[in-house]
């Protein structure tokens, strides 16, 4: 049996078939997992190779082994745990207060043009002032205790989060609101039973993004004046040229941040499964 001898190669005319360069499409699961592992493993391997076979001063670039040792040392003295708890506490309080305040403000701004007109210009202005630039003022007003650090996180999160929540509320379909009215719902019911549930996924997502900002701000605040905290740890280590400890601090900060992010994504899936198709 002879195969057809079509002179025109069909693949010439259409796009070349590809797995890796698929536009806006999923790739096979094993490939995805492999690439994700490589994304962490390759830099780690490079680091290990350079420090093992190169002649680099460990005070300039410590090897993974050095860092691991330093981690063990800091962990055993309890300093690392103490620092981590201190940083987490600051982020926890500052972020929680900011989110707690920004959600109602954002929902109101998105729902009512009047509130939006009242607050948006102010928020838009403050948003462009970098939160760390407030540090001198905060020290001046609130001293060097915990208050200025928590307040800094609040400032850094509250305005961004309010505006992002507002944006999600703006996208609630008008028909849905009108349908609620025709069903006899009043404004309060519409706000609580239609608008709020509809924007909940958006709120969680906005908060997730702003948590990253909060986590960065806590480190910044600790670099300047603190007696404990991960930022403080890095700052002190730098002063004594303990590069390995700086690495420990950075890695712990990164891992904790990633853990936060993943847990928020999990929360989103858990609470708003109806919206998962969109995201």
């Amino acid at each position: 049996m002879r195969q057809s001898t079509n002179p025109i190669d069909p693949s010439r005319k259409s796009l070349n078939s590809t797995v890796f360069w698929r536009l806006a499409e999923d790739i096979p699961k094993p490939l995805q997992t492999g690439l994700m592992v490589a994304s962490i493993a390759v830099p780690l391997l490079l680091w290990w190779l350079i420090t093992t076979f190169g002649t680099i001063d460990p005070t300039f670039l410590p090897s993974p082994g050095n860092v691991l040792t330093a981690f063990g040392r800091l962990w055993s003295t309890g300093e690392l745990l103490q620092d981590t708890v201190a940083s987490l506490w600051r982020v926890g309080v500052g972020f929680a207060v900011a989110v707690f305040c920004s959600i109602p403000v954002g929902v109101l701004m998105g729902s009512f043009s009047s509130i939006r007109a009242l607050l948006e210009p102010l928020f838009g202005l403050i948003r462009y002032m970098p939160a760390p630039a407030f540090i001198p003022l905060l020290i001046l007003y609130l001293g060097i205790g915990e208050e200025p650090k928590v307040t800094l996180i609040f400032i850094g999160v509250f305005f961004f989060n309010s505006l992002m929540v507002m944006d999600t509320v703006k996208f609630v379909p008008k028909d849905l609101i009108e349908a609620t009215y025709t069903l006899g719902g009043n404004r309060l019911q519409t706000l609580l039973q239609v608008i709020f549930p509809h924007v909940l996924p958006g709120i969680i997502d906005a908060s997730r993004i702003n948590l990253a900002a909060a986590w960065q701000l806590v480190i910044v605040s600790e670099l300047i004046a603190a007696t404990e905290g991960l930022g403080r740890r890095i700052s002190v280590a730098g002063r004594f040229l303990r590069t390995d400890e700086i690495f420990v601090g950075l890695i712990v900060i990164g891992v904790i941040g990633l853990a936060f992010d993943l847990s928020f994504q999990y929360l989103l899936r858990l609470s708003c499964s109806w919206a998962s198709q969109k995201r």
Binding site: P173, D175, L176, T182, G184, H198, A275
Partner: peptide
């Protein structure tokens, strides 16, 4: 607006987080 006139919209206007039964019963 009031429940004596009910509107059916082109894009359905269902609450996406509620099931069919919950949408009707609401």
């Amino acid at each position: 607006p009031g429940p004596d006139r009910m509107m059916v919209f082109q894009n359905y206007s269902l609450l996406p987080w509620k099931t069919v039964r919950e949408n009707v019963s609401l």
